[in-house]
Design a protein around this nucleic acid. Sequence first.
DNA 1: AAACAGTATAACCATATTGTTATTTACTTT
DNA 2: AAAGTAAATAACAATATGGTTATACTGTTT
Lengths: 107, 107
Amino acid sequence: MEFDQLADALKALGDPTRLKIIALLQTRDCCVCELVPIFGISQPAVSKHMSRLKTSGLVKETRKGMWVFYSLNRDRLEEIRISLTNLPDLSEELRQLEQQGLLVQCD
Amino acid sequence: MEFDQLADALKALGDPTRLKIIALLQTRDCCVCELVPIFGISQPAVSKHMSRLKTSGLVKETRKGMWVFYSLNRDRLEEIRISLTNLPDLSEELRQLEQQGLLVQCD
DNA sequence: AAACAGTATAACCATATTGTTATTTACTTT
DNA sequence: AAAGTAAATAACAATATGGTTATACTGTTT
């Protein structure tokens, strides 16, 4: 995964409310109105968090009557974990900088 | 790891510049003046990114003469990965909410 | 001791983020 | 069709973020 895309996903996870939402969704699909009393924030605030998570592909939504149920995209979360474990190797870029004399030698 | 602490660390990683710095540090310890030409931002901007990463425990610093070399705290990064893989189980909290009639039953 | 090099901090600015309330949209129930 | 419930969007406010330039601090070199 590209740096920008991975950073975006980590940023989506990097908010306590959203991270806890992800944890909740690991147990059970939830709709917005259930999350409101849990977090003590307004319904639009919850909606915006879900929208942010959806943008990064971390959740999927399914309408059931009046409710929109959000479910965890487990594949996506796994993908993020894997990308974080295998960050691109930038040694080649560093070698090029070294040739340009931009790296410090202080040993 | 607590939600707030993990969210803080993920937020630190959730910036393209900082994420790339982490990737660079996987190859080689770097000092601030090396990172400046790589990212094309000012020296104070790099310093602030390093300070943010240090606050979350992702990097350690070592002074070598004039330079401050930053190294990756691999244990910390691994800890974050593990925490992200094993988010707290909130099923008990959900059960309590269910007893309070706060969860939607729509099946 | 004076000048220099690298880094950190301070003060500031523009934009992003995260919340709010008000309103609109989508669907259900009466 | 009218009223009710859930969710999304709009408009806004306060704070956070990520950059800048100027300056202070730390250590080195002359």
